[in-house]
Amino acid sequence: MFIINCPYCGERDQSEFSCGGEAHIERPKQPTELSDDQWAEYLFMRKNIKGIQFERWNHIHGCRKWFNVVRDTSNDKIHAVYKMGERPPIK
């Protein structure tokens, strides 16, 4: 169980949150313009990194806000949290 520093509520136990998978995958603005392959790329393809991964989390049992987390999947260390729409603070 990690502790996640919700950008709205502060540090809380992981059990208050749910993970929404990889971050920074923007929904295409004009899906109809895309080929099957391009659409499938958006729809299905996700990275599964051992190491630094950018993830979306939702404080589902708290403020209900979505935000981004930079987590090292090899040791669960969270390097940063930042709000939706903000740029990742680290590369």
Partner: peptide, 9 residues
Amino acid sequence: AQTIVNRID
């Protein structure tokens, strides 16, 4: 605080 008690919001 919004949290969970016995897994209930």
